[in-house]
Design a protein around this nucleic acid. Sequence first.
DNA 1: TGCGATTAAATCGTGCGCAATATATATTGC
DNA 2: GCAATATATATTGCGCACGATTTAATCGCA
Lengths: 154, 154
Amino acid sequence: MTEPSAGACVPPELDELLCFAVYSAGLAFTRAYRAPLEAMGLTYPQYLVMVALWSEDGVMVSRLGDRLSLDSGTLTPLLKRLEAMGLLERRRAQEDERRVIISLTPEGRALGDKAADVTRCIGNAIGLSPGEITDLTGTLQRLRSHLDAAGRKA
Amino acid sequence: MTEPSAGACVPPELDELLCFAVYSAGLAFTRAYRAPLEAMGLTYPQYLVMVALWSEDGVMVSRLGDRLSLDSGTLTPLLKRLEAMGLLERRRAQEDERRVIISLTPEGRALGDKAADVTRCIGNAIGLSPGEITDLTGTLQRLRSHLDAAGRKA
DNA sequence: TGCGATTAAATCGTGCGCAATATATATTGC
DNA sequence: GCAATATATATTGCGCACGATTTAATCGCA
């Protein structure tokens, strides 16, 4: 007679939920990046888009969307803001006018030189050992791929 | 002569950044929770607020803000929506009219019975062992406290 | 060749997340 | 008592994040 009432029906505790740990670490990262990125004039999501472009330039919007797992509804206005800042160009591909190709300007590429400083600055704030950081990053990537796979099925 | 030019100035790779792993796992969680929470009529942040209230009811807005690390600019409209759904009440404390006390309604409290199902559903999608989940949650909590501490200094 | 299906991006509406500011209440110092 | 200060929440504005829809270009194929 331990089955129906107690046990399984206890609501979860916030601090035991993995999803909340991820959620709140994500917000903490957003806050931690705000000050260092202010010097570059970028928001945190804009910075992640620039990181993607510094390693692979001249790509379609959907390619960026795949790498960052964001859709055009998020990326289009964000990219327009980066274009207005003079960091990149958006132009239709002439061989297929549906595609919009994103290319860094010299200014946008040059901004990459400051990125290492930001990474170093955040690295200090993380407070984990290099080994822990590597492990954590890998485990989170595995977690993401599992969540994505489960979502694709549903 | 290896110092000034090369080495430190390489922009980071997206998939090696811990911040991006956290960011994108967070988005994946948001997507994973959408379907199970739709049955409860809640968004993911609304669900986290309810989780906090199921374990500690009758609290000030700022208490919720401390537990979730969210400010009134986020919580006030979110709580108003939950109030409009009939899940909670917002009333000024009579001993200090600056304070707004959040109390679950019977409907709000009853909704907690369905939370275990949601947790179970997400648990399947996580795809990590119980031990890994515990470790990951703990490491992320440590990470968050480091990032918060670094932010408080700056 | 023509025309429905598919693909790529843009648009629209809603709900966070947060900095900056405003408002109202409470406390403190004199 | 009452002005100065502190505290608690609310408001405003901006930038994501994303589902749903729209627009436009290309592809498939009879």
